[in-house]
């Protein structure tokens, strides 16, 4: 360090009360501004392209986005998602319970289920269920290895849509089971011990004490699964079921306008995924009650606070 002249060192020698008056200046970051501006330029270029490139063919997009056939296809997609989610998570909960049970036989069966359904590609499973009638022409209810009381033709019982729902739900159940099991394992063991020490019945322990706490860990992963199932339903186009992606393909096969119709599908997928994310946000807030970290205000609450604040300022 070079020696300072008395003049240069002066500010440090000043008495404490005048040091307090020195202005504090945050560190400047000019490159941050440059990077931000560059990103904005790229984004503007992309949006400009969307607007003016005739290849996007927005008139065709407008023709089809709310057309009856597309709306019906969106309905089928939502139906597949709903059935897949509800049945998948219901079965997943059962499998998770089996894997957490005290019985080694049940634990092994549950493990094997998860192993099998995670190992086989979904598309293979779907085509397999679609061809179930080849293996079993009739499905019956009766005593195992004994007499049958009633039986149905497999094709009557399981149409294309049924096969798709079955395939999606069975596949989803394997993942749901692991997500639910993970959530349950994350609940502190002391919680179950306290519930047991209080003599709370077993089912109530699970329903009132463990599950609500496990939900915090389950929800983000479950929402991921629902969203990925929602988009994943497009895979059932291989079974010629009129869901969104299949329908879009049918239309562009006829009209040759691939890009605008892909945009029709994209916009629907994005819109509905956004809706699911919103639902996730509020459900997660509900299950966060009592947690250490305070739930931040919702966008709606923030808006209301801002409005009342500005009113108060004017008053």
């Amino acid at each position: 360090m070079t020696a300072l002249t008395p003049e240069q060192a002066l500010p440090l020698r000043q008495p404490a009360d005048s040091v307090q008056e020195l202005r504090i200046v945050p560190h400047r970051r000019p490159w941050r501004l440059v990077a931000g501006l560059a990103a904005l330029v790229l984004a503007a270029q992309f949006l400009h392209g969307l607007a003016v490139n005739p290849g996007w063919d927005w008139p065709t997009f407008r023709t089809f986005v709310f057309s009856d056939s597309i709306l019906r296809a969106v309905g089928v997609t939502l139906q597949l998602t709903a059935y897949g989610t509800v049945l998948g998570f219901a079965l997943g909960a059962v499998i998770a319970a089996l894997r957490l049970s005290g019985s080694p036989i049940l634990r092994t069966i549950a493990w094997t289920y998860v192993w099998a359904f995670r190992s086989i590609p979904l598309i293979v499973q779907l085509v397999f269920w679609f061809n179930l009638a080849y293996l079993y022409k009739r499905i019956g209810i009766g005593v195992p290895f004994g007499p049958t009381f009633a039986s149905f033709g497999t094709m009557d019982l399981l149409g294309a849509l049924g096969a798709a729902v079955l395939g999606l739900a069975l596949h989803q159940a394997a993942y749901a089971a692991e997500i639910i099991r993970g959530g349950v394992l994350a609940v502190d063991a002391g919680q179950l011990e306290a519930a047991a020490a209080l003599g709370i019945p077993r089912f109530r322990q699970a329903w009132r004490i463990v599950l609500p706490q496990a939900m915090r860990g389950i929800l983000p992963n479950a929402a991921n699964e629902v969203i990925s199932l929602f988009k994943g339903t497009s895979i059932v186009y291989v079974m010629a079921i009129g869901e969104l992606f299949y329908q879009v393909q049918v239309i562009y096969g006829r009209t040759g306008r691939v890009v605008p119709l892909l945009m029709v599908a994209t916009v629907w997928y994005v819109l509905l995924t956004t809706a699911l994310s919103l639902v996730q946000y509020y459900v997660e807030r509900y299950f966060a009650r009592g947690s250490e970290r305070h739930a931040p205000p919702t966008p709606w609450q923030r808006l209301r606070a801002a409005v009342t604040e500005s009113k108060e300022k004017r008053a």
């Binding site: 502190d188 002391g190 919680q191 011990e193 306290a194 519930a195 047991a196 020490a197 209080l198 003599g199 709370i200 019945p201 077993r202 004490i209 609500p212 706490q213 299950f287 009650r289 009592g290 947690s291």
Partner: peptide, 26 residues
């Protein structure tokens, strides 16, 4: 059976070192 044990425990109060209150309930 567990059901009977749980019933017996209602006659015994237990206080844990780490409280083990149910955090999601008031």
């Amino acid at each position: 059976p567990e059901r009977e044990v749980l019933k017996q425990r209602t006659r015994l109060g237990f206080v844990f070192q780490n409280f083990n209150l149910f955090p999601h309930l008031t």
